[in-house]
């Protein structure tokens, strides 16, 4: 007799599914149902409270007429590119250095990793004080006698977004380093040894042999940093609060202010849906990639 394996469930399997059920139900309601709800709201004329007076895609047209939204998108682009790029390069560099000196690992790994344990609000507030020309770095340099020293990016509308990049990189680089360090430990030793025997120098060894083998680490880093960049909110609020003026506004701060303080819930929901769409563009290739690998 042939048993259809696909439908046969063992006792353990049943228990596992039973235990997971509450989580699945809660996730369905509180994550997916609310995503659908938000999408519905984005097609309505909701102001203070959700209503169901349909306006079609009007909110999507209007949001792109708001210069405020363009600023937010532009800032997100600048932030994501610099944040992901610099944190990846810096994290990889630190990981390689630590990988070389195994004795130093126990000292340096915690040092670089600790910023990740601090909440974004604390990071933002600390960097706000440090970068404030009146009390922070600039003031200290003046006290030390460097009267010409000037670093007022946080007060400068064209530069303030870069201060968020600096603080965010400071926070996340250690975490990136740990991911790469784990990747470096999983490298196939045989290939490295044979390369060394063949006389490859350190530069060639890393660029041709080792880094190409870190593919999965790069994907992890990219996806983790990518979603952090899109939803970054608390760091912006604590560091610049979107200022000076509206110069460092991000999509997440835009979404909060339109939904909760400007009584334009329709526009707020629209921005949330657009953020989800951007996020999906980044994450879906990753998920498909993983699923394909598992299937194979």
């Amino acid at each position: 007799m042939i048993i259809n394996n696909k439908w046969r469930i063992s006792k353990d399997d049943l228990t596992a599914r039973f235990v997971l059920l509450p989580t699945i139900v809660l996730t369905l309601v509180f994550v997916y149902a609310f995503i659908i709800f938000t999408i519905i709201i984005s097609f309505t004329n909701s102001k203070l409270m959700p209503t169901f007076s349909w306006v079609g895609i009007e909110n999507y047209i209007r949001i792109f007429q708001l210069s405020h939204w363009h600023t937010a998108l532009k800032n997100m682009l600048i932030f994501s590119v610099l944040y992901i790029g610099i944190a990846t390069v810096l994290g990889l560099f630190l990981a390689i250095l630590i990988d070389w000196s195994r004795s130093g690992e126990h000292i340096f790994r915690p040092i670089y990793l600790y910023p990740m344990a601090i909440s974004f609000i604390v990071t933002g507030t600390a960097w706000k004080w440090f970068l404030d020309p009146g009390i922070g770095l600039e003031k200290i340099m003046h006290l030390w006698g460097f009267a010409e020293f000037s670093f007022n990016w946080i007060k400068n509308a064209d530069r303030s977004i870069y201060t968020i990049v600096i603080a965010a990189i400071w926070q996340v680089t250690g975490y990136v380093m740990v991911i790469f360090l784990a990747g470096l430990r999983g490298i196939n030793h045989a290939t490295v040894e044979s390369a060394v025997v063949d006389g490859a120098n350190a530069w060639k060894l890393y660029t041709r042999i080792i880094i190409p083998q870190l593919g999965t680490s790069f994907t992890s880093v990219f996806v983790i940093l990518g979603h952090m960049a899109i939803k970054s909110y608390d760091l912006v609020v604590a560091l610049t609060n979107g200022g000076p003026g509206r110069a460092s506004e991000m999509p997440s701060t835009f979404m909060y202010s339109y939904t909760f303080t400007r009584n334009q819930m329709g526009i707020g929901a629209t921005s949330a849906v657009l953020m989800l769409a951007i996020f999906a563009i980044i994450i879906i290739p990753y998920i498909r990639n993983t699923v394909n690998k598992e299937g194979a």
Binding site: H68, A157, P244, G245, R246
Partner: peptide, 11 residues
């Protein structure tokens, strides 16, 4: 607010 504060900050 958006316009007044952006103007005041020279944008």
């Amino acid at each position: 607010y958006d316009v007044v504060t952006s103007h005041f900050n020279g944008m």
